[in-house]
Design a protein around this nucleic acid. Structure first.
Lengths: 250, 250
DNA sequence: AGGGTTTTATATGTCTTACAATTAAATGTT
DNA sequence: AACATTTAATTGTAAGACATATAAAACCCT
C-alpha cells in the first residue's frame, strides 16, 4: 500500500478518499493542525489525479474538517472544529431541515421551548450580570414602537440566546443554538400585534426577573406560558388567514 | 448577468459559487428535487471551468444539499434533507467537537442530562408501548453478565434514545440525537464495575416505570440521580487513575 | 553588519482538453 | 410487439499547463 489511509472498496473515488481521510481524522491518526501531504503527493499515493483529490478535500473543507492555505508553506491542515463553526453548521442544517420537511409550527415550537426549559435550572443558578444585561437590553429593544416584525423576532432570538448562554455550558449552548435560531424563519411569518408584543415582553421580563432571583421554578412557569401563548398566536393567525382566503377561492 | 444566482464579490471561485447555490436552495429559488443545470451549463453561465463547478458541487454534496446522478437524465438535484441525514451530520459534528476541544466529561454530561430532561414531560405524556418495550429490552440487555463495557454503553445510548423518541417530536429527537450519541466515546472510557452497573440499571428501571405511569416528576428525579451518579463515577475513576499514576512519575 | 528588497521555490487555485463510465431514450431487429 | 442495439447526454476521472499567493532564501544597498 502506498498510502496509510484504509479505503472503502467501492463507490466514487473522491468519495472514498474523503471518507478515508475523514476516518483518519476522527480516529486521531491525523492530529489537529497537522499538515496533510500536498495534493500532488496525495494524488500519487492514492493513484488518482489532482482534481479528484481536490474534490475529496473540498468535501472535508465543507465540513470544516480541514482548512487550506496557499503559498510556500501552505497545504491542507486538520482543523480544530471550533464551537463557532459547529454553531454555524448546526444552524444551517436545522434551518434546512425545518424548511424542507414541512415541520408544522407547533412541533418546532414545542421542541424549542422544551429544549430551552432544559437550561433554566443551570441559568438560574449561574446567571452572570453580563447575560442578565443582554436579556434586559433585548427586552428594551423589543418595546421600541417602530420595530419591524423581523426586528422583533431577531431580538426574541437574541433574548433566548442570552438565556441559554447563561447556563455557562458551551456544549449546551451549541446544541440549543440550532434549535432556537432555526426557528426564526418560521417565527418571522407571524405578524405581531401591539397587544401580543406587550404580552410577550411581559413574559420575557418575568423570565429575566426569575433568573435574576435564582428562581428556576418561576422561570420555567413563565417560559411554559410563553410557549403556549406563542403556539396559540400562530394558530390564531393561521385560522384568520384561512377564513380570509376561503371566500376568494369560492 | 448570465446566471440567476447572486454571488459574493471576493474569495475563491468555487467557494463563492457553492455559497450562491446554497443561498438559492435555502431561499427556495431552487426547489426540492429540482434539477440544476448541467455542469457544463453552470460552468458557462458562471464563466468558470468545469472542475471549479465540480468543486463547488462537492461542497454542497458534503452537506447533503444536493445529490448527483450519472447518465443521460442525470445531473445534480436539490436534495430533501431527511431527518436521518441530519441526525448523521449532527452526530459527526458533535463527536468531533467533543473530541477536539477537550470538553471535560462533567460539562458534556451535564449538557446531555439537561437536554434529556427536556423531553421527559412529553415522553411521560405520550409514551407508546413500542418505546417502552425498547427501554425494557435495553434494560434487560444491560443486565447480561458477559456484556462488555462498550456493549453496556451502546445499550445505554439505545435506552436513552428510546426515552427521547418517546416524546414523538421529530425535531426534538433530531436535536437530542447528537447530544446523546456524541457522548458515547467519552462514556466508553469509563470502566463499569458490577456494582455501578446494578445501580445504573435500577435507575433506568425507575425511569421506565415512571414513564409508563405517566409520572414526569418521578422520571425527572430518577434522571437527575442518574446524572449525578454518572458524574461521580467518572470523577472517582479519574481520581483513582491519578493516584495510580502519580507514583510512577515520581 | 544589518535591514529592507527582490528573487525563488512551493503550494494551492483555476483552466483546458480529453476520455471513461453510466444511464435512459431512441432506434433497429426479429 | 418485444427485445436487443445504438446513441446521446451527463457525470466521473485524467493529465498538463498556467495563475496566484506566500514564506523563505538570496541579494543589494546603506
Amino acid at each position: 500500500m502506498t498510502h496509510p489511509y484504509p479505503m472503502a472498496a467501492e463507490g466514487e473515488l473522491s468519495l472514498r478518499i474523503s471518507a478515508a481521510l475523514r476516518d483518519a481524522i476522527i480516529a486521531g491518526r491525523l492530529l489537529v493542525d497537522q499538515r496533510l501531504p500536498s495534493e500532488q503527493e496525495l494524488a500519487d499515493s492514492f493513484g488518482v489525479s489532482r482534481p479528484t483529490i481536490r474534490e475529496a478535500l473540498k468535501r472535508l473543507a465543507a465540513q470544516n474538517l480541514i482548512r487550506t492555505q496557499r503559498g510556500a508553506t501552505g497545504g491542507a491542515f486538520v482543523n480544530r472544529l471550533s464551537f463557532e463553526e459547529a454553531y454555524g453548521q448546526q444552524i444551517t442544517t436545522s434551518t434546512l431541515l425545518l424548511s424542507m420537511n414541512e415541520v408544522d409550527f407547533e412541533t418546532a415550537c414545542e421542541a424549542r421551548y422544551a429544549l430551552e426549559r432544559a437550561c433554566i435550572p443551570l441559568s438560574a443558578q449561574r446567571r452572570s450580570n453580563d447575560h442578565l444585561a443582554t436579556m434586559r437590553a433585548e427586552i428594551h429593544r423589543q418595546s421600541q414602537p417602530g420595530l419591524s416584525d423581523q426586528g422583533f423576532c431577531a431580538s426574541d432570538v437574541a433574548f433566548h440566546r442570552a438565556l441559554v448562554d447563561g447556563a455557562h455550558n458551551p456544549v449546551l449552548s451549541y446544541q440549543l443554538a440550532g434549535a432556537v435560531e432555526a426557528m426564526q424563519p418560521l417565527m418571522n411569518m407571524i405578524t405581531f400585534t401591539a397587544r401580543s408584543r406587550t404580552r410577550i415582553i411581559a413574559l420575557h421580563a418575568d423570565i429575566a426577573t426569575a433568573i435574576e432571583a435564582h428562581d428556576a421554578h418561576a422561570a420555567e412557569t413563565a417560559l411554559a406560558t410563553l410557549a403556549s401563548y406563542t403556539i396559540d398566536l400562530a394558530n390564531d393567525i393561521r385560522a384568520r388567514r384561512k377564513t380570509r382566503q376561503a371566500p376568494q377561492t369560492e
